[in-house]
Design a protein around this nucleic acid. Sequence first.
DNA 1: TGTGCTTGCACCATCGATTGTGCAACTTAG
DNA 2: CTAAGTTGCACAATCGATGGTGCAAGCACA
Lengths: 355, 355
Amino acid sequence: MTEKEQRKATIYDLSVKSGASASTVSAVLNGTWRKRRISEETANKIILLAQEHKYTANQQARALRSSRSGLAGLLLPIYDTRFFSSMAQTFEAQARKRGFLPVVVAGRRDPEEERRTVESLVAYSIDLLFIAGATDPDGVHKVCARARLPHVNIDLPGTLASSVISDNRQGARALTLAIIRHAQQGGPLTPDDVYMFGGRDDHASRERTIGFHAAKAEIFGTCRGDDMESTGYSPSMTALAFERFYQRHGRLPRCFFINSSINFEGLLRFMGKHDGEAFGDIVVGCFDYDPFGSFLPFPVYMIRPDIEGMLEKGFELLDLEEDAPRIVLIEPQLVLPRTALEGPLDELKDSVTSL
Amino acid sequence: MTEKEQRKATIYDLSVKSGASASTVSAVLNGTWRKRRISEETANKIILLAQEHKYTANQQARALRSSRSGLAGLLLPIYDTRFFSSMAQTFEAQARKRGFLPVVVAGRRDPEEERRTVESLVAYSIDLLFIAGATDPDGVHKVCARARLPHVNIDLPGTLASSVISDNRQGARALTLAIIRHAQQGGPLTPDDVYMFGGRDDHASRERTIGFHAAKAEIFGTCRGDDMESTGYSPSMTALAFERFYQRHGRLPRCFFINSSINFEGLLRFMGKHDGEAFGDIVVGCFDYDPFGSFLPFPVYMIRPDIEGMLEKGFELLDLEEDAPRIVLIEPQLVLPRTALEGPLDELKDSVTSL
DNA sequence: TGTGCTTGCACCATCGATTGTGCAACTTAG
DNA sequence: CTAAGTTGCACAATCGATGGTGCAAGCACA
């Protein structure tokens, strides 16, 4: 009787077995029973029964009635970047900690697809949405607003909802200073030796550009404008940019700033076609962290956005339910070359060797 | 009237506006209207109305009634490995293509948490589940069976449900042959120069070990057993294993096989503490692909599992609804050193530069 | 004109949980 | 011993979509 249930138990099954009404069972099992003045005795009996029958509430029914689904959404552009997959993992942990079931979806940097994707989340009446790196945050905002869906922007700000983002400007400045100083150890440097690749016309790229130029100005006193190649978030376009630079100058810049690990993959593709002489003495800064990237055969400084901090803050903002949108800056971390940071992997219970 | 709806439209709203009954509206909008002999005219009228009002069905209600939620689950151990995040991304695309909303969750390699996680998916009456790298696939299977939830194992086989996995043995053999041959170019090699790090007592590790030893036997004719360090899937334990080896031999093995990119991160940590002399002439094989890993300052051969192929096959198996579990092998790909493969990133619409 | 078939749709129970309301039974005060 | 308050619970409507069933109107045919 306890073992071989045919279907999943419902409150009605427990109601019959316990002699209490379904509403009583419901109240007991969702924790509102004190408010409903159910006796401790009745409650305990029902809780025991529920455990015996491995009762779990049908979330669809609960959601239908209460219009709270228990689902929390995260919209990413893509997954398979260290940055976004860390985001997914951290989001998962934090959402579950708060009692939500996380649903992570990708908009593939297509405004239309972003909106459709969010619509489909809305159809599941998700309770909240984190928008991380949408191409069109405000378009997504409108979909959310129509559905009265609480949401925050993460990492890339929108104007219509609150945003939690990295301090791109300061991070870029620190990163640029670090690579310039490192490169200067190999001999004097001119502004022309310091270049920037990647990014496009979004808020993050703009801020990083400002930080990049601010650092150059601090070191060199001045800085000309012709020191960037904006390639979008595309490995292949970035590879082309490196190739062009190489054709023009016979080498890569002594020292350069790469806008994200996606663009960094463009450098890899360039490297795949050339041998070491093309990049023997370069110093690279990348606004993103990837442990393998940190150990490439030249100094790589990286910036690790504080994903945990951003998401934590994002949940806080959602709890506050303010209506005036605001922007919160979170400081990222400068990671020195040849550094393998610990990560979520280290918290797993798997560390036990089987030998 | 079309613009400022207060709440999301329901079939009842459309029923009133169209003059048809709610059941007619429902039938029209879910495509069963021909079967119900609704006239084309009525159908068109309702479809138009639905578009005007941006109607989307409440999935909770639909799920409650029909007990099909439209959710498809993927259980991962963790996200932030290139392998699993690619898996998540590919799964997302394939699930959406098939009309499901993907829900990706992580069990963190803890059998208990895996089961709890799946229970929570069951509470949402998900329609199918992919189990990728569960620590206890058969435990998860039981939870699924109780809930009559169709499921397949991906990448790590179970005995109770069908599985789609990489051909670990052949992959490991090919990888081992590749690194040995490469290392032999630097001078003669003995079996003691060829080592294996990482993995534990799971099916994948066992098969890879067999392939590894098979390759050694092919080359050296024989092979002793003392050529492995099983460290679990933990970066820190792997780092320790490298450290121990280094303490004993004063260097790393000329040539070694790393069981996964997670273990590879252990090598990074080791490298972070040592300078180049500890690994000047090593040749490494890793059973996983990471583009940055491919460009480290020594030759790295990698195996890229065919994630797309595995998932595709997984969906096929679920469609078949066989009851006898079976195992399908998918061939992985050997990736030569210094190779930046194209990936999902390249399919994005983002390639346009803003300059 | 009556019988029987088809067309086109409406009615209504149902999925499982939530929640406002009602009301016995019991307790306490006067 | 009665009125007022408290305790402990049951009842029933409801969320939105689905699908079995029933039935009127229209038509063909004898």
